[in-house]
Amino acid sequence: MPAMFPIKESRFLSGDVKLFRVEAPRIARKRQAGQFVIVRIHEHGERIPLTIADSDVEQGTITIIVQGVGKTTRLLNQLEAGDSILDVVGPLGEPSEIKAFGTVVVIGGGVGTAIAYPTAVAMKQAGNHVITIVGARNQSLLILEEEVRATSDELYLMTDDGSYGEHGFVTQKLQALIDQGRTIDHVLAIGPIPMMRAVAEVTRPHQIPTIVSLNPIMVDGTGMCGGCRVYVGKECKFACVDGPEFDAHQVDFTNLIQRNKMYRDREQESLEAFEADPTDDLEEAHHCHMEQKFPEVGPRTV
């Protein structure tokens, strides 16, 4: 009988981004900023990595923040408090390097804000001056504004369309800070790959140490499959055990983009099938807690 991971709380942060508090006491106890879990929703599901945004040791819960981009994340985002997730394993990956760097700029793009948030908190606690730059396409996609504000010494909100905060990209703000002659000792950038690559190009000429969190396709998350391999300074690294954070100036982003496209057709198909008729998946996901009564989860009827 698999042990379930009950969802204690869930709420949307924006149109397609949802926060979950999930009971996982062992993981809550061990997790450090920058680490992630791998989840599988039901017997027929795939394993996907999600960053641990926060944890509560006393309650024995972890927080994950999920953007519905494809089948698995959209299915997950239809679950509610009271539902359960079949498998949650972690904490995986190396924690972020946290120390008193001096002035740290944390850059979050889209759901990357959620991934960067725990590290920003830890950076602040370590005594850094934390400048946070958060970017989104428009206002409705901005998440965690209050939380981020509370941990930042300076916060800059950027929207692509100027619907909120300042008009422009996160890189423009970073460039502006550099041009103003601000000393920046460390940069952490998490978001879409093009954004991370652009940040790396902004900081490279100034030799500002820059860390990015990579999002290759993963399976086990324990170094067993090599599917998550990324190339950093020509060296092959497994992002799930050696990362997910790496030196932005060394990462081969082009390869990461190409490898992430490997299953595009299949992902599209499965998303379309799910959108057309989500009932089987939802039923199976909801049935998880009835396992006790029906130990065998049979194949779905199509």
Partner: peptide, 10 residues
């Protein structure tokens, strides 16, 4: 107990 990575979870 599945989903327990010794060295990570415990």
């Amino acid at each position: 107990q599945t989903n327990v990575v010794i060295g990570k979870t415990v």
